[in-house]
Structure formats: structure tokens, C-alpha cells
Write a protein that binds this DNA or RNA. Sequence first.
DNA 1: CCGTTTAATATGAAATTTCATATAAAGCGG
DNA 2: CCGCTTTATATGAAATTTCATATTAAACGG
Lengths: 154, 154
Amino acid sequence: MDGPQASDPEAGFVGSYLLYLLASVSERASAEFHAHARNQGVRMPEWRVLACLHDGDGAMITRLAQFALMEQSRLTKIVDQMAARGLVTRRADPRDGRRVRVHLTAAGRRLAAQLTADARAHEARILDRLDPDDAARIKPILKKLLAGLKEGAE
Amino acid sequence: MDGPQASDPEAGFVGSYLLYLLASVSERASAEFHAHARNQGVRMPEWRVLACLHDGDGAMITRLAQFALMEQSRLTKIVDQMAARGLVTRRADPRDGRRVRVHLTAAGRRLAAQLTADARAHEARILDRLDPDDAARIKPILKKLLAGLKEGAE
DNA sequence: CCGTTTAATATGAAATTTCATATAAAGCGG
DNA sequence: CCGCTTTATATGAAATTTCATATTAAACGG
């Protein structure tokens, strides 16, 4: 009398809808790590920027926005805040004055390195909760899904 | 000179970080469907509420918030807006005056049924882009991951 | 070199989201 | 029944996010 989901969350449409599963797994997994990041004073959007810059310092705003999964105008504001906090600096691209290249400061680099290491450890803990078989399959499948989705978006 | 990700997005840490893959697959897949939903005048949070109520009408605010992956206070406001638009109604629970049960109106029910059908079709198209093997594995793996994550959160 | 188009980033107002807290109803021990 | 604790939802101010548009630089055709 409470609907299908009251007794069994897997029943009904939502409980086995691919997009719900993806969103809720992503949310929960991220929430675990973001709780840790917040203790370092870093929120999700900022952590994403740090991680991207850790991979490749001096990225331009637009590319960071693509990787950090947010809109350009939002990223601009996040970079502003991070710059104000001394985690990154903005530099004009000498070759193309329209571009702004974002660089980690020494403090930003330390934080990024630390959090990236923590993220690897956290990922390992999550994968450990799966059978080795599944653990080995999940990333390749997600990459294929992503490739398929990018195609569709072209 | 542009960092690892410039030439190959899969290189570097981020490109094969589980939480990034999950988030970006979820984002992109959802974006595809949400573009459709928006054409019907429904945004992501509202669509999630509609889908939950389609599965089990008369859910309470707290449960809807859990399923729709958002905070209670946010859900309260979304239900307000949806009620103002005539998609749902609020009713006090006769047994427990603290609870608010949210019900679909006739218009809400039509919209929920339509969008849910569209969502099933969309999901099928996404899974079709994978090998049948992978397509068969993805949901079970996500469900196991979710189960593991829920455990950790207890 | 000029005018036009495109690309990269910034900005501001409006809307949403978060955070902390308020309200109000149950539940519970005595 | 009374006070105390817990549960469910609401509310309001502050912060963030979105959306549309502005700004500035490059690119390009003539």
C-alpha cells in the first residue's frame, strides 16, 4: 500500500533503470570521497579542477570545464575562488590572448597530489567490495558506454 | 606540452578514475534524456520525482528525496513547484500528521507514464551500443556496487 | 588592412541549492 | 498526562548555479 519501492527498492521502474543506477552509484561513491575532500576544505567542483590540473597543469578554462563536467561560466567562477584561496593562478596564453591557462600553485600542487593519492586508495577500496571479475569489467564497460555517448553527442 | 589529457583523454589519472567514469557516463547519459524531458517542460529533479511517483504514488517527502538523490529541503521546494504546476498534490498522512504524501494528479500521471515509456526506450538505445555481453553485465555490476556503497554508509 | 565571423572567457541578474534552524507531530519513560 | 527525544517537513538567508549576453582576441575573405 506504499507502492512497489516500499518493500523492495529494486522493484518498480526506477530501481533498475540504468540512468538511476548510474546516478546513484556515482552520487554515493562520490559522496564518500567528497566527505574526505571537504575535511581538507575542498568541495567537489574544486577537487575536480585540482585533479585535472594534476594530470595536466596549465589547462585552459574550456578544457577544464569539459573534464570537470560543468559549464564554462561556472568553472570561471570556481577558478576565481580557487585563485583567491591561493590554489591556482591564471595566466594569459602568450600565443592566444583569448585563452586563460590555469596553473597550480605550490600549495595547490601539494593538495592535488595528496587528494589524488587518497582518491586512488579510495577507488581501490570500492573495487575491493566487488568480485575480481566484476572489478575487472566495470571500467572497460564504462569506457565503452562513454565512447558510445560521445558519438551520439557529435 | 599541454599535459597528458590534451592528446589522449584516457591518459593521466582522471581519464580512468572510476568516480570520473561513473560521473561522466551518468552526466552524458542523463543529459541525453533530460534534453528530451526539457522539451516537455520537465527538468531533471522533477523527472526524478515523477518517475518515483509513477513507481509508487503517495510517497512521503523523505523517501522521494532518497530516491531522487537530493536533500529533503530541496525536494520540499521542488514538490511545491510541481504542485503549483498541477502535476502533484500534497496530502497529510491520516495516520501520522508529520508526513506529507505526494500524489500524482491526472496530468502528472499522464506525463509520468509518457516519460517513463520514453526513458525505457532511451535506455534500450544506450544498451544497444554495447556488446550484448557487456549490456547484460552492466546493471548487475552497478547494483552490486550500490549495495556495497550502501553498506559502507550505514 | 578592414569588416565579419568565430572562439575563449567574463559578467550580472534570476533561479536554484545549501545550510542551519524552526515547527509540529509522534513516541516514550515515568 | 508530562516532559523529553526523535522524526518529518518547512523556511529563510547565504551561496552557488544557470542563462543570456558582453567583451576581447584570433581568423579569415577580400
